[in-house]
Structures are given as C-alpha cells and as structure tokens.
Amino acid sequence: MSAAGGATRLRSPRTAAFLRAAAVSFAAGLLMGAVYWLLGIRSPAPPLLGLTGLLGIVVGERAVRAACGRWRRPASAARDEDPAPEKDSHP
C-alpha cells in the first residue's frame, strides 16, 4: 500500500470535496491569469486589495447565513416546545 493511497482514505468526504473545490478554484485563477497575460490586461486590483475583498465576501456570506439561521431557529424551536392546545371534549 502506498503512502498516498493511505492518506486519501483518511480524509473525510467533506474534506475531499473542499480540496477538489479549492483545486478547481486555483486552476480557474491560473487560467484567468494566463488570459489576462495573453490579452495584456493588468489585474484590476493589487493582489492584497483583491484578497481583502474576497475575504470580505466570504465573511459577509457566512454572517448572513448565521443570522438567517438564528432567526429561523427560535420559531421552529417554539413550535416544537409549545404544541397547539388540545380541544376540550365535553360530554
């Protein structure tokens, strides 16, 4: 058994999916960098500024997702804890 084969078995499916997505993202970035170079176009933002913008996008996306999750959770929890009152059956 090779070391590489053993290492891939230890990764969870979620980690493997992330690594695939990261590799595709990196490859797309390399491709776009090559296209920019071929067309003689300079990057629209300095690298540090561009990375800072991407960080803001990621943080903003996660903040909205977390806020939406907090707003939805109490309503569903309240439904689960306080069932509708049963109708009284009088003879």
Rank of each mutant, 00 (worst) to 15 (best):
A27K: 10
S76K: 00
G60P: 02
D88L: 15
G50L: 15
R72C: 02
P44R: 05
H90M: 03
C68Q: 12
A16P: 00
E61A: 09
D80H: 08
M32P: 05
P46R: 15
W71G: 05
T15Q: 15
M1Q: 00
A21R: 10
P13F: 00
R65W: 03
A78K: 03
F26L: 08
L48Y: 06
G40H: 02
L54C: 05
A66L: 13
P83S: 12
V24P: 00
R73M: 02
A21Y: 05
G6R: 15
S76F: 00
S2L: 11
R62H: 13
V24I: 12
R62N: 14
P74L: 09
A23N: 07
L38W: 14
A7P: 04
R79S: 06
V64D: 08
L55H: 07
G53A: 04
H90E: 08
G56H: 01
D80C: 07
T15H: 10
V58F: 10
G69L: 01
V24T: 15
L51Y: 12
R9E: 13
A75T: 01
A27D: 11
A63F: 01
L55T: 10
P85T: 04
L31V: 04
R79K: 04
L49V: 06
F18R: 14
P44C: 09
R9Q: 07
R79I: 04
P74W: 05
R65D: 15
F26G: 06
F18S: 14
T52Y: 02
A4L: 15
M32S: 13
P74R: 11
